[in-house]
Design a protein around this nucleic acid. Structure first.
Length: 311
RNA sequence: GCGUCGGUCGGAUAGCGGCUAUUCCAGGAGACUGUAAAUCUCCCGCCUUCGGGCAUCAGUGGUUCGAGUCCACUCCGACGCA
């Protein structure tokens, strides 16, 4: 039987992190309970617990804590969290790297007889792992990218067409044809490999259980407002200043989704809401996700599911 | 009271006689092959059988083949002078 991997996803500020921790805690207590609670201080108390793998494209970076709403040590409640703080914000981290690391972690966690819980809001990252997409092995070529940005989208499209007719054909809709970032990436791959390989997916050896947390818009707005208020209180501006000082470029800041010049309350709130909408656009496509408005019922669902499979 | 400037989509803005009223923001719907809070597309007055159809630039008259665009008056706002 395929090993289970729990995935907790959803829009920002819906309470994914705390749900994941809750699930992990229940996994741990469920096991140690059946082993008799006498030895709760032993390290083996961790056995058969849950471990969390973050799936957040910004929380992978060191130093982006307040602005990304990164979970605190205290909130982790002793549950191991992986793939936080694994990258340098000055450099680009990519989905491919994420996929590789996440797959390693899943394996390690299962070897430890624990259950991996992927938790995060970056749909692209989650899909890369859960759908087993194989990305072409072509690292970013910054020199080439720098050269290519100067060209117009049409020029880039024609270049791609010359290099790889088939890939150009796949890029048939307007939103793709005008997307320079994507065209450049396609050219980059085609130049390195001769052509862009067909997108392949391998059936995963794991069973992913996808739980989505969803809130009605007015409630989500309230939560976001509260969170943003907290960010400013806890020193968002200080954090940004620090990053700036450590040499994170303006361009990088934009890529990371931060307003470089003094972000205001309202601005951060509206940006976050927009982001939440985009997240939902992504998640809507995935019919495997089981949606919950209430974290408690999501918890119950997982609880029952795991009990049934005698975990 | 007199004078000057101005009133254009939810907000901001361009157009200053010529048929299709611009751009930005906000809003909505999407796309996604190693940047994904990135990047890109479409819609955003009303109706639509998705081919179009009908409105519309503070108001009312007027000039003109043709008016956000020119003229007159009215209303509203900003500034200046009394």
């Amino acid at each position: 039987m395929r090993k289970k991997v729990i995935v907790v996803l959803g829009q920002t500020a819906t309470g994914k992190s705390s749900l994941a921790v809750k699930i992990a805690l229940r996994l741990r207590s469920g096991r140690s309970g059946s082993e008799k609670p006498s030895g709760s201080m032993r390290p083996s108390a961790q056995k058969f617990g849950g471990e969390i793998i973050s799936a957040d494209s910004r929380q992978v970076y060191k130093g982006l804590d307040i602005g990304t709403g990164k979970i605190s040590k205290k909130e982790m409640k002793g549950i191991p969290h992986h793939l936080l703080d694994v990258a340098n914000p000055k450099k680009q981290f990519t989905v491919s790297e994420y996929k590789k690391l996440a797959e390693e972690k899943i394996k390690e966690i299962i070897d430890r007889k624990n259950i991996p819980i992927i938790c995060g809001g970056t749909g692209f990252y989650i899909d890369a792992v859960t759908r087993g997409t194989i990305f072409p092995e072509v690292p970013p070529n910054n020199k080439l990218r720098k050269q290519l940005v100067r060209f117009s989208a049409i020029a880039l499209f024609l270049t791609l067409k010359k290099l790889d007719q088939k890939r150009a054909q796949d890029i048939r809709n307007k939103s793709e044809q005008n997307n320079k970032v994507r065209l450049i990436r396609a050219i980059e791959i085609a130049k390195a490999l001769g052509r862009v390989p067909c997108l392949e997916t391998v059936p995963s050896s794991y069973k992913f259980i996808k739980i989505g947390l969803y809130l009605p818009e007015n409630e989500l707005r309230k939560k976001i407002e509260k969170r943003v208020k907290g960010m400013f209180q806890f020193g968002l501006l200080r954090e940004i200043k620090k990053l700036k000082k450590s040499g994170v470029s303006k361009k990088r800041f934009r890529e990371l989704g931060f307003e470089y010049n003094n972000p205001t309350h309202d601005k951060v709130i509206s940006e976050t809401l927009k982001y939440a909408k985009r997240q939902m656009t992504w998640f809507k496509r995935d019919k495997e996700i089981k949606w919950f408005t209430n974290p408690a019922s999501a918890f119950l669902y997982i609880h029952k599911l795991l009990a049934k499979s005698k975990l």
